[in-house]
C-alpha cells in the first residue's frame, strides 16, 4: 500500500506544471524515504530530477518500493483541476496498474476522486557525477525567469560569463544583442531578494534559452533559484522546496547540456 497526503496540495500542482511540458512520460519511484523522479526531455538535451521527502507529506506510507510510470501531461491535467487550497492524496495498492488521486477542498464536505492508468516504462537511470562547480549563483527565481524570458526575445541562446566583477547573461540575434549584468547584493535583510555569487574559477558557457524558459516554470515553487556551472559540463538549475516552517522538503533540479564549439 502506498499513500501520500499533502495538505499544501498546490506544491504537487506546481511541480507538475514545472515538468509536464519538458517530460512527457516518467516514473515516480516511491520508497520509505519519499517520492522521486528522473527523466530526460524528449530531445535528450536536459534532465529533470524531482525529489519529495516523506517528511514533507502530512501522511506518508510506503510498504514496499513502487515504480509508478505515467503520462505526466495527463497527470498534470487532472491535478490542475484541484484547487490551490485542496488537500491532495495519492494512493496505490502494491500491485497497482493505476493510482487514485483524491482532492479535498478545505472546509468543505466534498471529495473528488480520480484514477489514472499506470504505464510500464523502460526508463533508464542516468548517473549524475559529483561535481565541484566553479561558479554558484543564487538569485531570486522571478529575476531568473525574467532574464530568460527577456533575452529569448532577442536570441536563441544565452552566454553566461562569471568573473570577479559579477555575472553577465548575454545574447545576440538578428535584431541585435542584449545583456544583463548581476552583482552580488550587499545586505541580507531580504534573503528572498538576495543575489549571491561564488566564483572559484571564471567561466563562459552558452545554453539554449528554450530550455531555461522551461525550467523557469518552477518559479512558483521557490523564491530563490541556484545556478551551478563548470567548464564543459551541464548547468544545474535548482529550486529547493520548503514547507511552512522553512524546512527543506524536496527539490527540482534541471540539468542542461551546454552548447559547444562545433
Amino acid at each position: 500500500m502506498f499513500e501520500a497526503r499533502m495538505v499544501r496540495g498546490f506544491i504537487i500542482k506546481r511541480i507538475l506544471e514545472a515538468i509536464k511540458d519538458l517530460v512527457s512520460e516518467a516514473s515516480w519511484d516511491c520508497s520509505t524515504s519519499g517520492m522521486s523522479l528522473q527523466a530526460m526531455d524528449t530531445s535528450h538535451v536536459s534532465l529533470v530530477s524531482v525529489s519529495l521527502k516523506a517528511d514533507g507529506f502530512d501522511k506518508y506510507r510506503c510498504d514496499r518500493n513502487l515504480t509508478l510510470g505515467m503520462n505526466l501531461a495527463s497527470l498534470a491535467q487532472i491535478v490542475k483541476a484541484a484547487g490551490n487550497d485542496d488537500v491532495i492524496t495519492i494512493k496505490a495498492p502494491d500491485d497497482a496498474d493505476k493510482i487514485t488521486l483524491i482532492f479535498e477542498p478545505k472546509s468543505e464536505t466534498e471529495t473528488w476522486e480520480y484514477e489514472i492508468k499506470l504505464m510500464n516504462l523502460d526508463s533508464e537511470y542516468l548517473g549524475i557525477p559529483e561535481t565541484d562547480y566553479s561558479v554558484k549563483i543564487n538569485l531570486p527565481s522571478h529575476k531568473f525567469q525574467r532574464i530568460c524570458r527577456d533575452l529569448s526575445q532577442i536570441g536563441d541562446s544565452v552566454t553566461i560569463s562569471a568573473a570577479k566583477d559579477g555575472v553577465r547573461f548575454s545574447t545576440t540575434g538578428d535584431l541585435g544583442s542584449g545583456n544583463v549584468k548581476l552583482n552580488q547584493t550587499a545586505s541580507a535583510d531580504k534573503p528572498d531578494e538576495a543575489v549571491t555569487i561564488k566564483i572559484e574559477e571564471p567561466i563562459i558557457l552558452s545554453f539554449a534559452l528554450k530550455y531555461l524558459n522551461h525550467f523557469a516554470r518552477a518559479t512558483a515553487l521557490s523564491p530563490q533559484v541556484s545556478l551551478s556551472l563548470s567548464k564543459d559540463v551541464p548547468l544545474v538549475v535548482e529550486y529547493v522546496i520548503h514547507d511552512d516552517d522553512d524546512d527543506e522538503i524536496g527539490y527540482i533540479r534541471y540539468y542542461l547540456a551546454p552548447k559547444i564549439e562545433e
Binding site: V45, L47, K259
Partner: peptide, 14 residues
C-alpha cells in the same frame, strides 16, 4: 558556431 550536445554525453546510464 556553437552546437547543442546531448545530456547523455555527460551522464551515463547506471
Amino acid at each position: 558556431k556553437k552546437g547543442q550536445v546531448s545530456i547523455t554525453n555527460f551522464f551515463k546510464p547506471t
